[in-house]
Structures are given as C-alpha cells and as structure tokens.
Write a protein that binds this DNA or RNA. Structure first.
Ligand SMILES: [Mn+2]
Ligand SMILES: [Mn+2]
Ligand SMILES: [Mn+2]
Ligand SMILES: [Mn+2]
Lengths: 219, 219
DNA sequence: GTATATTGTTAGAACTATCTAACAAAATTG
DNA sequence: CAATTTTGTTAGATAGTTCTAACAATATAC
C-alpha cells in the first residue's frame, strides 16, 4: 500500500506525464515543492515498490500499476470535492485543500457511499472527470474559450486551472459550470473577449481567463 | 500542531487517565500497541511539545493544553462517527475505523459543517459524549444494566465498550440506543439478567453484556 | 564544438517513529 | 526484607522523508 507521501507523488506523476508518459525529475520537484535530491531518492523508492520505471538521467514513467493507483487516488479526491459541494454545501473554491487530505483515507466503503449518494457523478465541481473504480478516466476534449469565435454560443464545462484565486474571480462574475456564454467580440490586440450571459450583458474576459475556461460549443 | 501519531497518543492518554490524571508507560504501550521504549521516547517528545508532564519513573500527566488537544481530536472522531451513521447510512459497528482516520483531518470547517448538518449532536452513535469546540466534555453518569434491579424499566443510553463484535451482538438482538428494557429477573448464580423489550419477550443477557450496557432508569 | 546553463546524482545529515537487547528502578510477594 | 516480578530506561538500529553541498551528466547557446 502506497504511503500518503507516495500517493501524492503518484498523483503528480500522473498529472505531469506527457504523451509518452514521461516526467522529468525537475518538474516533479517543482510540482511537489521539494528539492531534486528528495525526488531522486523518492523515485528510487517508487521504483522499488513497482509504481514506476526509473533509469539514471532518464525521465521516469509510471507503470500500469502506478497509473491505476494514481487514478484511484484522484478518484477519491474528486469524489470528495463533489461530495463537499453537493452534500455539504461548500463552495467549489473551498474543497481542494480538504480533498487533498481526505483522498488518503483508506476506507473503500466511505468513498463508495459518497459515490452512491451522489448518483455516480462523472465530473468533479471543477469539471474534471472522476476516474471509475478501475482507475479508467473518460477523456473529454473541450475547447478553451480562447479558441472560440465571435458569435458562438458555448457552455462553460470545465477549467484548466482551479486555483482558489481563479475560482473566486469566477464567483465574482457569477461564472459557474453549465453557464451559457455568448461571444460578443474578441479584441485582436490582447486576445480579450467580451461575452454575455444571464444578468451580465457584457463582461470582458482577459486572454489569461479565456485560456482557463473550457467550453462546449452549442451554437 | 500535533502529528497524527501524537494525536493518537493524546487520545489514549486522555482515555487512560485516572482520577489524578496519571497514565503509566506500560498501560500506554499496551493501548497503543507499541513497545515501552517507543512510548518512552514518545512521551519525551510530547513533553517537549508541551502536551504532558513527564518525570523519570513517574506516570505521565497531560497538561491543560494536552487535555484540550485530546478532547478536540475526540470531538472530530465522534462527530465523524455520528455523521457516518446519520448522514451516510453506515451501521454503528462500521464507523470507528473510518473515524480513526478522519479524526486527523485538519479542516475546522469540515467538522463544523458536519456538526451543523446534524444539529449539534451531544453524543456519538455509541452514546459517548461529543466534546464541545473548546474541548469541554459534558459528563453524564449512567448506571450499568448490572447495577439495576428486577422490575425496573430502563433506557439503553450508551456502552462501556464499542468493539465491532459487541456491536454486532447487539445488532443481532435488536438492541440499539434508546430502546426501553424491562428487567424481568436476575440470576444470582451468574449475574445474568432476563429483559424484555419491543418484539423480544424474554432475552437473557450475560453479566459481561450487562456490564457493558449503560442505562437511564425511567421507571 | 566548446562554454555555459540546466538537470540530475551522490554523499552526508536530520528528524520522526518504530524496534530489540540489555540494564535499572520500583513494586510485589513470600 | 530479600527475592522475584513488573515496570521503565538506555543504547543502538532501521525505515521513511526530507534537507544542503558538492559534483556529474546533458542540453543549450554562441
Ligand atoms: Mn482538487
Ligand atoms: Mn494529498
Ligand atoms: Mn470510535
Ligand atoms: Mn486515529
């Protein structure tokens, strides 16, 4: 059984993996907020325990076991976030830190019960997919708002960043998942966009914001 | 902030303390399922961190800080157990192990929200009192069923032991908290008692069981 | 293609939480 | 009260997770 620390490394590895499944030591060190020697010694441990493949001076790659373990921790994290929002009345900006801890609880029934109570949700409060019990993730490919064109009608479906500050920014504009946005115009100088939606006749969103909003085009 | 390990020691210390607040190293070692040298070194750490008073060859005593910290962990444990039973549909025999982990979550809002959702319960699913936010415990003094007399009508209010096996035994007899029991007779040879209650005209309970049932006399 | 910058590794140390073996103090017992 | 048992301590070790300093390999830039 992976320790709490190992579980956190596995999650980071899973999220940082490129198309080839590779992760560099330096990236991992930055993500985990530890030094490179710490990562170096931890990847040796993770390899010893069968979670990844490590060869000196090469990027590391999660094994199938490692990927599954990571996905199952991510499942617990996202189920927890959804439970906190849907069943306990927390805001989507409050749940990540709590889920970061609860994801390490070893009690399958606890998470199965959450899942049942919510009717088996497929995404978390930030629109990220919840892996199934076997660790499989249903990939969905949304567009960023930046990629959309003037005149299109889109639904806000997910986020590429879920920092508290960004979520609070979205709260302040009443931008939540499921909201339908009409793209009024796009400023070619700075790539900012003007959108309209319920009770917001014209809201200007910077490029930075548009890059972080994932949408489905519906018209 | 106390580590997870320290929190578990504090809880044990709190529960083992005698009238004078003292706990022996050997008791603590047994309770924590570790060796005496381990306890010896841990009490030095706990002392260093201000949670208890330790002098060589003397029993240890929690400081006020230590007592409060312990009570607050116990609060989280018992709120969690109550939440699991009342809001998530778990049986009272399933919740202790899960609560043993969740009690270490550092997220005051999470437990406050549980507390609110349940309307500020004062006891856990096994009838043990839930300390308040300041770590104060409202002491209630029940009688054990053994101490009661033939003919008395009592309400099952709490347990002196909440092991899974005992809880499953109680489940098998439909003995749950709040149940009214009429004491039909007591066998002076083995101190067993015959009681009657809803759908159970005459159920015989051994001395061991009677010692573990805490009741309020209502008639 | 050499110099420089970046990335990765090793060595050595610290701190937490645990163990066993050996010894010492305190309590119990006859 | 002396012998024995129980309780508690010390010493020394291990495993996990982290650090800094020093060095080595690889990648980038000129
Ligand atoms: Mn999250
Ligand atoms: Mn975590
Ligand atoms: Mn419990
Ligand atoms: Mn615990």
């Amino acid at each position: 059984m992976a320790s709490q620390t190992e579980e956190n490394y596995l999650k980071s590895l899973f999220n940082l993996a490129n198309e080839a499944g590779e992760v560099n030591i330096s990236e991992l060190a930055q993500q985990m907020q530890v030094s490179m020697p710490t990562v170096n010694s931890m990847v040796k441990t993770l390899q010893k325990n069968g979670w990844l493949i490590y060869e000196k001076y090469k990027p590391v790659i999660l094994t199938q076991e490692g990927k599954k373990e990571a996905a199952l921790v991510i499942r617990k994290h996202r189920l927890t976030e959804m439970f906190l929002v849907n069943k306990m009345g927390f805001g989507w900006e409050e749940v990540h830190e709590i889920a970061e801890q609860i994801e390490h609880i070893h009690a399958p029934k606890f998470f199965e019960r959450m899942d049942e109570m919510m009717g088996h949700p497929t995404v978390d409060p930030h629109g990220s997919p919840i892996p199934d019990k076997l660790g499989r993730i249903q990939e969905v490919n949304y567009l960023t708002l930046s990629q959309c064109k003037t005149g299109q009608l889109v639904v806000l479906a997910a986020l590429t960043n879920s920092s508290t500050e960004f979520l609070e920014f979205l709260n302040s504009r009443e931008l939540n998942l499921g909201k339908e946005l009409k793209i009024q115009s796009k400023e070619s100088y700075d790539q900012s966009m003007v959108v309209s939606f319920k009770d917001h006749a014209s809201e200007t969103l910077s490029e930075k914001v548009c890059d972080r909003l994932l949408v489905r085009v519906i018209g």
